[in-house]
Simulated assay, not measured.
Amino acid sequence: MAAGLGRRARSVEEMVINFGALAGFPTENFRPIEPRPTDVFITTWAKSGTTYIQQMFHQLRMAAATGTGDMAFDDISRMTPWEDSAVITDSDMNQPQKAEPRGFKSHREYERLPAGCRYVVTLRDPRETYVSFFRFMEGWMFEPGSIGIEEFFPLWMAGGPGGCDYYTHLLSWYARRHEPDTLLATYRWAVSNRAAMIRRLSAFCDIPLDNSSLALVMDMTSREYMYRHKDKFDDAMMAGALEAKVGIPADSDSTKVQAKGSDAKLVPPAVGAQIDAVWAERVAPVTGHKDFASLAEEIDALGG
């Protein structure tokens, strides 16, 4: 029998009830990661390019191992398992993967991940993440129209299962921008400079890359391609667990890939003021950057 509400939430308070209920379920198969130095953690913050980099990483290693890509999966997070949600999905994080190196998804800061591995992070404008996160949750986690975008701020700050808030994540990885174990880019740069990002990722992960593999991965990471295969990027494992445990229908739209990107201009002024206030309090004093655009210029320069 499902715990929680047994349905999608209709308020912020009901969202908290549903997610709180998940903690009460025992696990049978869960086993935490036994890390290896070659492991790659794709650990962007929520709605900041995680799925895009998961797809890029998986197709890179499959092209190197087999000479072709791979779409024979129901959920990209079965190929690069999601560390943060493993207890919810009752997953053994040490199951064999299709190719080397092993890859894992996370939304966490450096301090809560296994040390001594490799980390790939893309950073995104907070307003864009806000709109994208709202679009993603509406119609899946909560009933359409039941929570206004103005009310969504506490849910955005929560960051999802096992995650951290946007600012903690950004500051953690900004501090590691020059570390050899960390590949840091902005989401916008990674999308606009896809070939360069593929080359950076292959070199960083020690995955061989030739011209034919580059062309293959370029095609399979385009928005058009991923949108045509959006059912592969819809959190099927998480959706199944939420249906079984808290009664949230798994047939609702939970795809990560949208036909068009999220527009930061849709953030209401009052919410934008909250986002800016936390940036001014926490990020600007540490980084010297008054806003994300300024910080992005520094990070983009790392790509050459």
Rank of each mutant, 00 (worst) to 15 (best):
T168V: 15
F292Q: 00
C117S: 11
R223Y: 07
P96V: 13
R78N: 11
K98I: 09
A185F: 08
C117F: 11
S252M: 11
S91Y: 06
V131M: 05
Y52R: 02
D251S: 09
M220I: 08
A195W: 01
E179C: 06
S252Y: 10
W173P: 01
M157L: 10
I33W: 02
H178V: 12
S146T: 10
R194G: 05
Y52P: 00
K256S: 12
R194T: 14
R200D: 12
G163N: 01
G103I: 04
A99T: 10
S146G: 08
K256P: 02
A185D: 02
K230I: 05
S222I: 09
Y187I: 03
A277T: 14
R127F: 13
L242D: 01
W45E: 00
H289C: 15
S85R: 01
I53K: 00
R36V: 07
D75Y: 05
T80I: 15
R228Y: 02
S132A: 13
I76Q: 02
T287H: 01
A185E: 02
R223K: 08
I248W: 01
L5T: 09
A86K: 00
M141Y: 09
Y130W: 05
L302D: 04
W189R: 00
A115Y: 09
G272F: 15
L5M: 05
L123F: 06
